[in-house]
Simulated assay, not measured.
Amino acid sequence: MKDQIKKTMQHNQIVDIMYMAKDNTITKRRIKLIKIVGDTVQAYCFTRHAKRTFKFDNILAAYPVINRASGLNA
């Protein structure tokens, strides 16, 4: 998972993640990666409209957002 996240960051892609919060609720977030610090990812969260920190261990799935109109990554 960590390698996939790093790859999307290198390509400046927007990513959809499934994330498990502290209270064990699972949410879908659309994020723009800013930087990786240790076992966390700092990113702008489009869902919350704010900069957030996500723990790698709590990211259940991650996939880049594809712009379907052009076939290019968003």
Rank of each mutant, 00 (worst) to 15 (best):
residue 37 V to S: 15
residue 9 M to H: 03
residue 74 A to R: 13
residue 34 I to N: 05
residue 53 T to L: 06
residue 14 I to C: 08
residue 56 F to P: 02
residue 1 M to Q: 09
residue 73 N to G: 13
residue 40 T to K: 00
residue 54 F to P: 01
residue 51 K to S: 12
residue 61 A to F: 13
residue 6 K to P: 02
residue 65 V to E: 10
residue 19 Y to Q: 00
residue 40 T to R: 00
residue 71 G to V: 13
residue 57 D to V: 04
residue 62 A to D: 11
residue 65 V to I: 13
residue 45 C to G: 06
residue 67 N to S: 11
residue 27 T to P: 02
residue 47 T to A: 08
residue 54 F to R: 00
residue 30 R to W: 10
residue 72 L to K: 14
residue 41 V to Y: 00
residue 6 K to R: 09
residue 31 I to F: 03
residue 64 P to F: 08
residue 68 R to H: 15
residue 14 I to P: 11
residue 64 P to V: 07
residue 12 N to E: 12
residue 3 D to S: 14
residue 24 N to D: 15
residue 13 Q to K: 14
residue 9 M to A: 10
residue 22 K to C: 09
residue 41 V to F: 00
residue 38 G to R: 02
residue 38 G to D: 04
residue 50 A to I: 01
residue 24 N to S: 14
residue 28 K to T: 09
residue 27 T to R: 06
residue 74 A to G: 14
residue 1 M to L: 09
residue 42 Q to I: 03
residue 21 A to I: 06
residue 67 N to T: 08
residue 69 A to I: 14
residue 43 A to T: 00
residue 7 K to D: 09
residue 26 I to E: 03
residue 51 K to R: 08
residue 2 K to S: 02
residue 10 Q to R: 14
residue 37 V to Y: 03
residue 29 R to T: 04
residue 15 V to M: 05
residue 50 A to G: 04
residue 71 G to A: 15
residue 66 I to V: 15
residue 73 N to K: 11
residue 49 H to F: 10
residue 61 A to C: 07
residue 22 K to D: 10
residue 1 M to V: 06
residue 67 N to Y: 12
residue 41 V to H: 00
residue 63 Y to I: 07
residue 35 K to G: 01
residue 61 A to S: 10
residue 6 K to M: 05
residue 18 M to D: 05
residue 1 M to N: 08
residue 23 D to M: 13
residue 40 T to F: 00
residue 57 D to N: 07
residue 70 S to V: 13
residue 35 K to I: 01
residue 39 D to I: 01
residue 36 I to A: 02
residue 17 I to T: 03
residue 56 F to V: 01
residue 10 Q to F: 08
residue 7 K to V: 05
residue 1 M to E: 07
residue 31 I to T: 00
residue 34 I to M: 06
residue 9 M to P: 01
residue 73 N to M: 15
residue 1 M to I: 05
residue 24 N to Y: 11
residue 44 Y to G: 01
residue 28 K to L: 08
residue 30 R to A: 10
residue 55 K to M: 11
residue 8 T to R: 05
residue 24 N to L: 12
residue 4 Q to S: 14
residue 57 D to L: 04
residue 51 K to P: 13
residue 32 K to L: 06
residue 48 R to M: 03
residue 45 C to T: 05
residue 17 I to K: 01
residue 46 F to Y: 12
residue 25 T to H: 13
residue 32 K to S: 09
residue 18 M to I: 08
residue 58 N to A: 08
residue 42 Q to N: 06
residue 70 S to F: 10
residue 21 A to Q: 14
residue 44 Y to V: 00
residue 47 T to E: 06
residue 63 Y to S: 08
residue 28 K to N: 11
residue 59 I to G: 01
residue 65 V to N: 09
residue 67 N to I: 07
residue 1 M to G: 11
residue 44 Y to N: 01
residue 4 Q to V: 13
residue 21 A to C: 10
residue 53 T to C: 07
residue 20 M to L: 08
residue 68 R to P: 12
residue 6 K to H: 04
residue 10 Q to C: 06
residue 9 M to L: 09
residue 55 K to C: 09
residue 3 D to P: 14
residue 32 K to C: 06
residue 48 R to Q: 05
residue 67 N to Q: 10
residue 23 D to A: 12
residue 65 V to L: 12
residue 57 D to G: 04
residue 15 V to Y: 05
residue 4 Q to D: 11
residue 12 N to D: 12
residue 54 F to Q: 00
residue 38 G to H: 02
residue 12 N to Y: 15
residue 68 R to N: 15
residue 38 G to Y: 05
residue 40 T to E: 01
residue 61 A to H: 11
residue 26 I to W: 04
residue 61 A to R: 06
